[in-house]
Simulated assay, not measured.
Amino acid sequence: MARRKTGRDVHGWLVVDKPAGITSNAVVNKVRWAFGAKKAGHAGTLDPEATGVLAVALGEATKTVPYITDALKAYRFTVKLGEATNTDDAEGEVIATSDARPTDTEIAEALHAFTGEIMQVPPKFSAVKIDGERAYKLARDDEDFEIAARPLWVDSLEMVARPDADHVTLEMVCGKGGYVRAIARDLGEALGCLGHVIELRRTWSGPFDAEDGVSMDLVEELAKSPDLDDYLRPLEDGLDDLPELKATAEGATRLRHGNPGMVIASDVDYGDEAWASFEGKAVAVGTYRAGELHPSRVFNQ
């Protein structure tokens, strides 16, 4: 018999402005404890030393995580030029150096090759699986292995500051599965000067902005208190990129039981993915077909 989950039924999103020095999973565990929630998850890992938006889903909102994971995300990061590390960030060991330093113009021109649909090889110190093993575990054991390149959509990549000859600050907007560390590594190689990330911040992720994020200090201060619920954002925010359809009362009942339900017609085309609401609450996500939504996910909130 499966063990029954304990905790209260709380549904929605908490946007955390993650500090450096803590893993994404540790943030999720702390948030789940603070709310006393049965279930929690996050929409996109940040490296331990990275800061910024970590969107934590609670309860039924965990069913909307894929829509935030697939959404565009923005990063601001600083690259140290002249050094390559084995982790592609400042946590690793320096494995090569270069005296070359590119000009601002050379950097700006090189960035064009990293926009649009690109192929990216994830860092060896990453959670990518190689024959069932995490790459970072193999790397720690000095195993010899290769990671296959994978496609990444980079919407934009711009230089926003050049503090000195050894550093450049960039802003990137990209799709799912992007590794900022790999961008820094590959840009350094393309410029002939090497490079690695020394500072990284996710400024927004889908509909969630770092400026609206709560601190972990506040989460701990308000833990187990009703006041913490005031910072919870609705489950529906996770469906921001999908069109909304209004369900009829009968349609909502059918949808909640996993059956096709009647929705009020809109400009959604046949076969489009959409979500249905009733009395302001999300009922289901599914495919629109001739006046009905055929559910793929049902919400019980």
Rank of each mutant, 00 (worst) to 15 (best):
F208I: 13
S266V: 07
D47W: 08
A113S: 14
L54S: 04
R32M: 10
E199T: 12
L255M: 08
T69N: 06
A20N: 01
S266H: 10
L228K: 05
V168E: 02
V15Q: 00
Q301T: 15
A43H: 04
A74P: 01
R181Q: 14
A43L: 06
A34C: 09
A265W: 03
D227W: 01
S225R: 08
E171R: 12
A210R: 06
E220A: 11
V31H: 10
D104T: 11
D209L: 05
I198Y: 04
L157R: 04
I118F: 09
T248M: 05
H11S: 07
T115K: 02
L111Q: 06
I147A: 04
M216F: 03
Y136G: 04
V121F: 08
R256C: 02
D99F: 11
A127V: 14
L58I: 01
K176D: 01
H167N: 05
A161V: 04
E236P: 00
P243M: 12
D104M: 02
R134F: 09
A61R: 07
R134Q: 11
V197Q: 07
L81V: 10
V160N: 03
H11R: 02
I22Y: 00
E189N: 15
A40I: 14
D227T: 04
E189G: 13
G271N: 07
D272Q: 13
P66N: 05
I68W: 00
Y179P: 04
K39Y: 09
V180I: 15
D9C: 01
D186K: 14
D164E: 07
N25A: 13
V28G: 02
L157D: 03
R140W: 08
